[in-house]
């Protein structure tokens, strides 16, 4: 957390823009530079910016999700689309595509959905790591009160 008016103002403005940009990156990723990995990094960079500017509590408050769960969902989601081919008697993760393109998005298929799984995983992992570090009491003992060291110890059994 860094109490800077400029940083905080810009961070607040940038959050929606960066999140939109990350979504844009994922959607266009199959044809132009971008993709789930870059998109995920961008989105978590947006959230990490909030952590730096306002602290982890604020970052959790404005986007109240459990990132551990986001990461797990991402891995599961990605794996699920690989299973589709298995059900149809093809090898695991063989690509299946819809015949007609969706307007505005383009062709939809399991690799695109898989990319969304990657996107979610990267967001969850990166952001949760940043939060774990930023909320670490050894590193930032003042953030939580009271610190565990001063708690009365339970008598030894």
């Amino acid at each position: 957390m860094y109490e800077s008016m400029i940083l905080r103002t810009i961070a607040r403005l940038m959050l929606p823009l960066l999140l939109l940009l990350s979504l844009f990156m994922v959607v266009r990723g199959h044809h132009l530079p971008g993709g789930g990995f870059v998109g995920g990094l961008l989105a978590s960079a947006a959230i990490i910016l909030q952590i730096v500017a306002f602290g982890p509590d604020y970052a959790r408050e404005i986007i109240p999700v459990n990132y551990l769960r986001v990461a797990a969902t991402g891995v599961g989601f990605a794996a699920c689309w690989g299973l589709l081919a298995l059900v149809q008697g093809q090898p695991f993760m063989a690509a299946r595509w819809l015949d007609t393109p969706i307007p505005g998005i383009g062709k939809l298929g399991t690799p695109v959905m898989f990319d969304i799984g990657v996107y979610l995983t990267v967001i969850g992992v990166t952001t949760q790591l940043a939060l774990v570090l930023a909320e670490e009491p050894t590193l930032y003992p003042l953030r939580r009160s009271p610190p565990p060291q001063t708690e009365p110890m339970a008598p030894e059994a």
Partner: peptide, 18 residues
Amino acid sequence: EGKGENVVNVILVDFRGF
């Protein structure tokens, strides 16, 4: 095969998806 023009991404999510 990969239905995408971005080769890097097609490799990541399709050819080398595993």
